[in-house]
Amino acid sequence: MSLIRNNPVAMYLQIADRLRAEITEGAYEPSGQLPSESQIMARFTVSRVTVRLALQQLDRDGLIERRKGKGTFVAGKQVRHQIDTLRSFHESLKVQGFDATMRIVELTAIETPSAFIPLFGTTCALLERLHVVNDEPIALGRSFLPAFMSELEREIAEQQPTYALLKDKAGADIVSAEIAIGARAVPPRITSLIGAAENAILLVLERSSYFETGACAEKSEFFIRPERYQFVLGSRMPDR
C-alpha cells in the first residue's frame, strides 16, 4: 500500500502507523522480527532517513527493540511453549524462528540425589545449560540424566537438545513426559545466571521423560524469566 505523498502528516509517521498496526495484528509472528531498513525502504519507496525516523518513533513508543547486528523486533516478544507437544525446551525455541543457543554451565558426573537413586542408581550426570534467545538469557535448564551422559562432548551438548542427546547416546526414543509448572523464588546463583532480579519469582517447569522401555530418561527443571515466556495448552472437544 502506497503512502499519501501530499498528506500533511509526515511520511515517516505514516510508515510508523502502518508498522504499528501490523505489529498489533501479529503480522511479524512468530519470531517478532520486523523487515530490515532496506526492505522497508523498498516497500514504501522512501529514503533510509525516513525509515529510521519511523523506527525511532516506534522505539519511543516502546513498540520495538533494535538489536545491534540482529535487526528490529517487537518489544517484549514472548516465547511460547506448546506443552501438549512432546518437544524439548530448545526445540520449542527453534521452531518459532528464534535465534536460540545454549551455553554449558555444568556437565559432570555426581552422586545421585537420594530421591532419584531408584531411577539412575548411585551416580548420574548433571547437565546445566543456559538457554539464550537473541543473546539474552531467558532460562536455565538443569537435568539429571543417566550416568553415561556425563561423557558427552561439551560442544555437542551446546548444540543438540536434550531429547536428541539422549536418543544418540541411549539408542532409544523418548515417548512420554510428565510436566508440572509453578512459580517460586530460587537461589541467587540462578537469578544471576539468567539476568533476573535477586528476589524475582521465576516460572519453574519440572519435567520427567521416559524411554519407550519405561525407564526414566531425565528429571529436569527449567528456571524461566516469566516476562519472556508463555506456556500454551491446546484443547479440543471430545468426540461424541
Rank of each mutant, 00 (worst) to 15 (best):
L130N: 09
Y12E: 02
L203W: 12
H131W: 05
I117W: 00
V132S: 02
S235M: 09
M237K: 12
R103H: 00
T85F: 01
L203T: 14
A196P: 02
E106V: 10
P8M: 08
A147K: 06
L202C: 08
Y12T: 00
V105H: 00
P137K: 09
A42D: 15
I138H: 06
F120L: 03
P187R: 13
A125F: 02
P226D: 08
D239Y: 12
E178T: 13
R20S: 14
A215C: 06
R52W: 03
N134V: 04
L86G: 06
G71P: 14
N6A: 04
S192Q: 15
D99I: 05
Q78P: 03
N6D: 05
P238V: 11
E178A: 12
M237F: 09
E218M: 08
E158W: 01
Y163D: 05
T45I: 10
G214M: 03
Y28V: 01
Y12W: 07
K219H: 07
E25G: 10
Q230K: 12
L19Q: 01
Q33H: 11
E29T: 05
T162R: 02
G76L: 10
E158R: 01
K219C: 09
N7A: 09
E206G: 11
L53I: 04
A42R: 15
Y229M: 04
D59A: 11
A16Q: 01
L86C: 07
R80T: 08
V74F: 03
G76A: 14
L86W: 09
